[in-house]
Nucleic acid binder design. Structure first.
Lengths: 350, 350
DNA sequence: CCTGCTTCCTAAATCGTTTAGCATGACACC
DNA sequence: GGTGTCATGCTAAACGATTTAGGAAGCAGG
């Protein structure tokens, strides 16, 4: 009257050992190809294991070895294609290294992040990969630090946390975008999606300011719109910029999603991107190249993050005492069709 | 000279108990708010736990309780936005139910899927959510079935596997798309992205055929292009259709990603979607509405899948003997700008 | 003083592995 | 035959929690 699989309960190492007339030690060693067990025995054990459908219980093994082969990944969001790509890269890289991913999503909510990371910690991952929720502080990550488990921050970082970091040089990237627009002749350049709640947002804002300064242009706060990097926000931000008395002739965006929204805003105002108004995105997700018109944007080399962060994590697992490492990739400007020289006279919507 | 956190090693239940002068039994019960322990004791224990930074070891607990609160999620892909959305929905729903997600991605590779699911199984998840890789057979999932762990298939299914299933009525959905095109006056309608390796592909093909038959139109295999649902494939498929002696005037696509590629193919041929050629996507991912021109597509109600699959899984955990349940959502046609009446004369590219 | 009942807590078994250290037997060597 | 060396496999103690059966203490009632 038992559930699936004949016999009572699951097949464990002990049962296997009893049935084979061996000790659990020998069976355990045999299954892991230890050289200390005779070939004949090893083969016999492995065959029996396969035949009986033995599946090791890693929880039990981890209890003994203090290694779970789990990596806890805590992301602030996975819907944005750039973070999906990050997650996919991480999963792939860790999978190759024999680690399995335990996933937690904070949805930009610090309280939820605390809860989620706490839960992940209970599974004793060998390492954490974290992209902190907006407004996270060092204190919010203190519990992680106290756990003694290696932590690698990816994309975003909490300054002063003292963890390894893999990300992109946001300041330089945004500087490239602004310089490109300046080179085309633009003098009033907006920023859609200032997002100081995240380190990426702060640095992109800094890059924007630096870019203006390098061109001798003044920083005008009214040309900056706030909000997280979502489509809606891009659209609203663009609407606000266009409604100004002296609207900008171009804008850089916090990310590509924002840019897509901004493009809709342009379209709604009857303006053509690349002609009436120039727009630069950020990230270079797959859709950017396919969009119509194709989006000029800054490539942050997202596909490299996953493997990179995984490498950092594996290195720290191997040597917890190695110096903190920060890998900052240099982004690249990708010029497509949404940027061009400004119209002689600044456009005003009717 | 020890690592972080004072004292030797981590703080365990036993240590906590010793320091408090209590037994581990009492501490364990107190931490879980058992009514059997005095209020004063309970509070004292919980405060001490917090103060000492105690983090329960779920691996150890699971060993005893045979419950891990882990859900193994094996997806064939997570890059496609529709599956990202699925994953996000699953994570959210399970997180609310107190379950944590252990992730595995097969990348459409059956061998990799076998490996991945095998690894996930070693962590003894309370349930599996699976979207099987293309060409998976019942045999490929037999190991899962034998494990005695509840399995819920989502989106795709392996016929005859006998697992619960949450998905969309693909046949009806594709029928809607074809009927819409027929209603606009189209008589030669292609299918870009026949994908018989997956149940979704087979059913969408069936729906395509049924739609044609319902309109009294013949099925012409040359109007069908093969391949997985990726952008490149859509572009190539469209190129092939347009190169035919008698090209179709419209086409349905396996999914939105394919449709985006197909739109590029149209553009490359100098044709305007919705005017020179009508195109219908499938899924209705966020980009579909924002694309230019906005994509007519079939909404498969993806956001509902995650919570739905989670519900099925939780129900089966609660009662492993309940009858197998298949929930099939009815999709909806979303008419936007890529479809219209056919041109009097079939277009030919130069 | 005994019995019976609460209330609060403990001892000990248990889950399924890993691993340090020891036992055994075979064989060779002197 | 005593001794040393190997190869092989076993014993037993962890790992860190949960849980069941039961014990000690206090108190009431006879």
């Amino acid at each position: 009257m038992t559930e699936a699989s004949s016999g009572a309960g699951r097949v464990t190492l002990q049962r296997l050992a009893r049935e084979l007339g061996l000790s659990t030690a020998t069976v355990s060693l045999a299954l892991r190809d230890s050289a200390v067990v005779a070939d004949a025995t090893r083969i016999k054990v492995q065959e029996a294991a396969r035949a009986r459908g033995y599946v090791a219980n890693r929880g039990a093994a981890s209890l003994r070895t203090a290694r779970t082969n789990i990596v806890g990944i805590g992301l602030h969001d996975i819907i944005n294609p750039s973070f999906t790509e990050l997650l996919a890269g991480l999963e792939d890289a860790f999978s190759i290294a024999g680690k399995t991913v335990l996933l937690g999503v904070s949805q930009e909510d610090v309280a939820r992040q605390t809860r989620t990371l706490g839960t992940l910690a209970e599974y004793r991952p060998d390492a954490f990969i974290v992209s902190p929720a907006a407004n996270s502080t060092v204190a919010d990550l203190k519990a992680l630090a106290a756990s003694g488990i290696p932590v690698v921050q990816v994309t975003r970082e909490v300054e002063g946390s003292g963890f390894d970091f893999a990300g992109s040089d946001d300041e330089t990237g945004m500087g490239l975008a602004v310089a490109h627009l300046v080179g085309l002749g633009h003098r009033r350049i907006g920023l859609i999606g200032s997002y100081p709640a995240a380190s990426t947002g702060r640095r992109r804002l800094a890059g924007y300011k630096a870019g203006l300064a390098a061109a001798g242009l003044p920083f005008d706060p009214t040309l900056v719109t706030d909000g997280p990097g979502l489509r809606d926000m891009g659209r609203q931000g663009m609407a606000r910029l266009l409604a100004l008395d002296a609207p900008p002739t171009a804008a850089v965006c916090f990310n590509d999603l924002t840019a897509f929204g901004a493009l809709m805003g342009l379209q709604a105002a009857g303006l053509a991107a690349g002609k009436d108004f120039s727009l630069v995105g950020y990230d270079d997700i797959a859709e950017a190249a396919l969009w119509h018109p194709a989006l000029t944007t800054v490539y942050t080399r997202i596909p490299e993050y996953g493997p990179l962060a995984a490498k950092l994590a594996l290195a720290r697992m191997a040597d917890p005492h190695r110096p903190v490492e920060r890998v900052v990739l240099t982004p690249q400007l990708v010029i497509r069709a949404t940027t061009g020289a400004p119209r002689p006279v600044a456009p005003r919507p009717v």
